[in-house]
Design a protein around this nucleic acid. Structure first.
Length: 484
DNA sequence: CACTGGAGCCAC
DNA sequence: AAACGTGGCTCCAGTG
């Protein structure tokens, strides 16, 4: 079936001298909608036999664990308290049993509605086999209901057809539903493997995922034009997450390059700070992690910090000034250095951007979206970056679909996850498709949108089997090959 | 019985 | 002043 060709709106052709406008934004959404609709029609192939077997296995595990739970003394107490109302699925009831009846100490704040928090973090502190088993069951139930049953429910002739929307998100990102394929467990979950094995390429095809590398950071640099940030982006030897970890934990660059330690620099400080978090919120998780992470010689990070004179976290109360010598005080001083010295241009941009928003009640994204309304400071600073980053992906989807149509390829775009796209296509088209996709995503887009003042990079993964078992591919001497 | 909001947890 | 940005899905608990 041949696809209709649409006239090329301004937004796709590029803006030379003038800024992008709302008209460009509208055209992007219109063209984007057509591509997303086509994606929905394409759908993603699902391994129904494996899915059915997995649901059976997980159900059996849940059943056995629940039998043990019902035989536990704690559940007898539970039954005594709640009688016929007793419900193993109620965390609220569990919390009352533990903290009221069994009188385990509850530390920290309650929820906004005055209930005990009963999440994994709180329950993990309770040293009872019943609670450990309870958490296991809850995780398995989430796995089964959301990711397995929720997937099965949407299968039609071996394919799911998730909906992608452009009208639901405040920052003008996209969203996905029925099922939401934008939150399928990935790296940080032990059931990424179980779920992702359900997603297949079509018969004879391969599955390809192409990610923009650090897209939001790059787009943020297009707004704030901070030379230090741009340098971090351009120089492959520089690494701001490693540097943050080094500063926060008082380590050398080499020590901070350790994967788990660098991870805390990135997800415990740099990203939260970029989203508007502050030192007294960052400090506690960083301190907790320091009690688990060790240097290569086996020294615990907290012991290392102690040897540098830091032996306690501090109160982390925004109303109190951190006491000298606490970890909290150290994180504050690193934060001060981070924003007022290292990224002072970024910092200055935030001040000016928010001031302009307060004056006018509006701001305009680099992609032309004119946004007005009542926003918090963090919202006003984040929406433009988050939205425009996604618009780069949307632009690329449109261009790639055009190219696939023009060249008569069989490869189909089947999903999009904010800064990445998923293809399902024959292996013999792979070389040409990867080359075109990378050109579109990193070169063509910069010609159309010259406001992108930093290089863009993509990461390519290919799988002949399923969405879990994918290999990193790189281009080498004009040919795409698996890395190593 | 339908609906709603909270809480929790998955993603980027 | 605000206090980590954006979503979707599931279950529970409460309401009318």
């Amino acid at each position: 079936m041949s696809e209709p060709t649409y006239p090329l709106p301004d937004v796709m052709a590029g803006k030379k001298d003038k800024d992008m406008t709302s008209k460009d934004a509208c055209e992007l959404l219109q063209r984007g909608s057509l591509v997303l609709a086509q994606m929905e029609g394409n759908g993603m192939r699902i391994n129904e036999d494996y899915l059915a077997k997995t649901i059976r296995d997980v159900s059996e595990r849940i059943r056995r664990l629940q039998i043990k739970l019902r035989g536990d003394d704690v559940y007898r107490v539970w039954r005594r308290e709640f009688g016929g109302q007793a419900n193993l699925g109620s965390r609220d009831q569990l919390a009352k049993v533990i903290f009221n009846t069994l009188e385990y100490p509850y530390v920290g704040a309650k929820t906004s509605t005055g209930r005990y928090r009963a999440d994994e973090e709180v329950l993990a502190q309770i040293d009872l086999p019943f609670v450990r088993r309870y958490l296991k069951v809850e995780r398995l139930k989430k796995l089964r209901s959301t990711y397995l049953e929720g997937l099965k429910r949407e299968i039609v002739d071996g394919y799911i057809h998730p909906t992608f929307s452009l009208h639901t998100v405040r920052s003008f990102r996209s969203s996905a539903d029925t099922p939401n394929v934008q939150n399928v467990p990935a790296r940080n979950s032990d059931y990424a493997e179980i779920v992702r094995r359900c997603y297949l390429p079509s018969p004879g095809n391969v599955l390809v995922e192409i990610d923009y590398r650090a897209l939001e950071v790059r787009i943020s640099a297009c707004y704030n034009k901070d030379p230090a940030l741009i340098e971090y982006i351009k120089d492959p030897n520089k690494d701001m997450h490693r540097d943050a970890a080094a500063g926060l934990y008082m380590l050398s660059e080499d020590e901070a390059a350790n994967e788990a330690i660098r991870y805390m620099g990135k997800n415990g400080f740099v990203f939260p700070e970029f989203y508007g978090s502050v030192y007294y919120q960052c400090a506690p998780p960083l301190w907790e992690a320091a009690n688990k992470l060790s240097l290569s010689d086996g020294t615990l990070l907290q012991d290392h910090l102690a040897s540098c004179g830091i032996i306690e976290l501090g109160k982390c109360d925004p109303k109190l000034d951190p006491r000298t010598g606490t970890f909290e005080a150290h994180v504050r001083s690193y934060e001060d250095d981070f924003w007022n010295r290292r990224f002072r241009v970024y910092s200055e941009w935030k001040r000016r951007w928010f001031e302009a928003y307060l004056k006018t009640g509006r701001f305009r994204m680099l992609t032309g979206f004119e946004i007005h309304g009542l926003f918090s400071r963090n919202d006003a600073l984040n929406y433009g970056i988050q939205g425009s980053a996604f618009h780069c992906l949307l632009w690329s989807l449109i261009r790639l679909q055009d190219w696939l149509n023009e060249t008569g390829k069989k490869t189909k775009i089947v999903a999009e996850i904010h800064d990445s796209l998923l293809l399902d296509g024959p292996e013999d088209e792979l070389q040409e498709v990867l080359t075109a996709a990378r050109r579109i995503m990193t070169e063509d887009i910069r010609k159309a949108w010259p406001w992108i003042i930093v290089p863009l990079e993509v990461e390519v993964e290919v799988s002949k089997t399923n969405w879990f078992e994918k290999e990193l591919w790189v281009e080498s001497g004009g040919k795409w090959v698996p890395k190593d």
